[in-house]
Design a binder for these strands. Sequence first.
DNA 1: ACATTAGTCATACGACCGTCTAATATTTCA
DNA 2: TGAAATATTAGACGGTCGTATGACTAATGT
Lengths: 190, 190
Amino acid sequence: MGTKGDNNRTRIVEAADQLFYKRGYNQTSFSDIADITGIPRGNFYYYFKTKDDILAAVVEARVKHYAEALLECENSSERPRERLLAFIDIMGSSEDTVVESGCPIGSLCAELAKDTDALQSKSREVFELLRDWMGKQFGEIGFADANDKAMDLLARMQGTAVIACTFKDNDYLNRSIGDLKSWVNSLTLS
Amino acid sequence: MGTKGDNNRTRIVEAADQLFYKRGYNQTSFSDIADITGIPRGNFYYYFKTKDDILAAVVEARVKHYAEALLECENSSERPRERLLAFIDIMGSSEDTVVESGCPIGSLCAELAKDTDALQSKSREVFELLRDWMGKQFGEIGFADANDKAMDLLARMQGTAVIACTFKDNDYLNRSIGDLKSWVNSLTLS
DNA sequence: ACATTAGTCATACGACCGTCTAATATTTCA
DNA sequence: TGAAATATTAGACGGTCGTATGACTAATGT
């Protein structure tokens, strides 16, 4: 079970998660994490062999977090279309942080696309989770091109986040979220 | 005039431009630029006081580059709608690099959104150029909400780039570019 | 009670970072 | 031609990075 060790490990992952989001992976140092958690820099090696291992733990934590969020969306309605709307609303409820630092998932993927392939494919896992879930919802609605629709929705949410963050524009973010929901509602089976 | 000096300065900016795109700003070191250009690290200080100054020069070069590209789009047709289509096609012609490293403008802004305000607002300048130009085109078509439309197009292009790059998916990129052009063509004055 | 493991800590390593300087080479043009 | 301005160079500065180690304490099982 391990009471203290797992606790420290969790605290490192949580602090890293926040820092990777606010400052980026490459701009987050072991010292930064040490300062926040109070856990000495040298102790990290006991829990993680490399910085990449911390990233892997953070990604796994995020996958778990979003899997739960998707489950909530799934339970929020019988109708897949409304489940998708519920997911879009998650971005709206994180309005301020999205404007400040962008999408936690997208900004990490964009950063690590310029690093090694290993980091890149690891960070992609969260997106794959979302894509597959969205594809499932569009499929249940009855779209033959459900996966394409999922990619489109993912892309439009990402674009919204990038532009809202770049221009520090809350109004745009909210308007765009509204447009996105209208779009999902307006889609008709051909 | 200065033949040699300006030449070196230009070569530094060009190499930095490429590296900022392929590896990111923070992950590009003076040594990297020195290796590519053959210009000693120590010489950089003669041309640029700080790394931020190099970024400023790169952004200015990009503004100039895209201003010329926009002029070409503007000359390509009398009709603003077709000018917008011409601009969208630029992304298609950079297909491989977009899939590899994302949008040069968007990925830089996304990275520097997590740095200082000074770097962030500097990197934003290229986006502002594009936004204003798009707004002008939509305005000429006759849209009352021309600026909103500009932000939407910008966002959808960014989302397309992020997703295509994350999933390394050329097919998605091309399909999405086609969808974007269809969308611009389908917009009607309300 | 003792041996083993789990957890903690300070510290050091070599590498690289952005920055800066002092010395040298080259060009300019009175 | 020769002084002044411009351009170039190697190298060092202080700092931080990710990584690694060895000594220490607390907890655990027998």
